[in-house]
Design a protein around this nucleic acid. Structure first.
Lengths: 210, 142
DNA sequence: GCTTTAAAAAGTAAAGT
DNA sequence: ACTTTACTTTAGAAAGC
């Protein structure tokens, strides 16, 4: 009986130690990514459930926490790409992605599909665009979705293209390079998405150059 | 661990005598590849007395459903699926009956992997086609 | 668990013209 | 801008780390 008690105490203390380090990791990630407290709280909850499902065994606290943060961001529709989060962790994005898949399967976590519109506000504010342009970009994304042009495409790339078009239409032109940098995708991706949107949604552009 | 290429295959050869042959398009191609490898080994003074026992471990096949797929709805409706367009454009569907994994794309193209028999591939492709059709996520065109 | 091998799908990326 | 090469995902076996 004493043995049983000791085993339980040992397990509990190791869990507490793990959690304590995880919180330190969470605070570091949260500060570097500039995430609101609500997201961090949710990430901690996800991490705790992962801990209870023993899925942290054998992998780094760092990657599991990064995966939990990514999941929390998606749940709260606060766009952060997996690569962005992986940038601040020692483990590579491959490891974080693996932990994220583990959370989905083993911890039966349900995360909503990423919506390109969720990326618009942040990209828009980085480019100091007006509310009207941001609204317009979201409308374009809605149209694209209804036209079935979003399947399989990177939401960040779609958001970037929609913003590029909206800005052009509202006379707040930003270069493809600027938009690409803000959205963290390449110029080529912005260009490809932009061309497809203009063609298939027959969007008319103001005095265009090419 | 050596690597050779002949009839468009790559083979890993282990000291135990076991080999892993990949890249062949048919079982007949595997037979040809294994025979030529044995011939090659013998030519280099390595004797092989037993006949090779060949087992198919995995078949990778591509198919075309000839209809586009609404991946967002499919991801929502299918239980064993994973769709993360941020990381990969295809929907990953783990089928239990023929135990295979299917990568489903919005174009209607499909990749089936994990099967050990051609018949399983056919069954799996027909099965997802019907599942997708019943779920109303197939947009027949053409 | 990781490593190596091959192939397909579609998207994104990077480098060289 | 276009092209080429390459990497993302999936499965499976082998033997060793």
């Amino acid at each position: 009986r004493l043995r049983k008690w000791q085993v339980r105490a040992r397990a509990q203390s190791s869990m507490e130690r793990n959690l304590a380090q995880a919180v330190i990791e969470l605070e570091r990630l949260g500060a570097q990514l500039g995430l609101p407290k609500a997201v961090l709280d949710r990430a901690l909850d996800i991490y705790k459930s992962a801990l209870d499902s023993n899925l942290v065994r054998g992998r780094s606290i760092e990657s599991v926490m990064a995966a939990a943060v990514y999941a929390a961001c998606r749940e709260m529709r606060l766009p952060r790409t997996l690569d962005e989060i992986a940038l601040y962790t020692r483990a590579g994005r491959k490891d974080v992605a693996r932990c994220y898949r583990l959370l989905l399967r083993e911890a039966s976590l349900k995360v909503p599909l990423p919506n390109a519109a969720d990326f618009v506000p942040r990209i828009g504010s980085l480019l100091r665009l007006s509310g009207a342009t941001i609204k317009r970009a979201m409308e374009i994304i809605d149209q694209a979705r209804n036209a079935g042009l979003t399947a399989g495409k990177d939401p960040a790339g779609l958001a970037a293209a929609a913003i590029y078009i909206a800005a052009l239409q509202n006379g707040e032109m930003r270069t493809q390079k600027e938009v690409a940098r803000a959205a963290k995708v390449t110029e080529v991706t912005v260009r490809n998405r932009y061309k497809e949107l203009v063609k298939k949604l027959d969007i008319k552009l103001p005095v265009s150059k090419k | 661990m050596l690597r050779l290429t002949r009839p468009k295959t790559a083979t890993l050869i282990f000291s135990s005598g076991k080999m892993v042959c990949t890249g062949a398009k048919s079982e007949a191609e595997v037979q040809k590849a294994v025979k030529s490898i044995i011939k090659l080994l013998k030519a280099h003074g390595i004797d092989i007395k037993n006949e090779p026992v060949i087992e198919v471990q995995n078949i990778v096949a591509s198919a075309n459903l000839k209809a586009s797929v609404d991946l967002e709805r499919a991801a929502f409706l299918l239980e064993n699926s994973m769709y993360e367009p941020e990381q990969f454009p295809g929907l990953i569907y783990r089928m239990q009956d023929p135990k295979v994994v299917l990568l489903i794309f919005s174009s209607g193209k499909v990749v089936c992997t994990g099967a050990k028999k051609e018949e399983e591939v056919k069954r799996a492709v027909e099965k997802i086609y019907n599942i997708l059709k019943e779920q109303g996520v197939l947009v027949e065109e053409e």
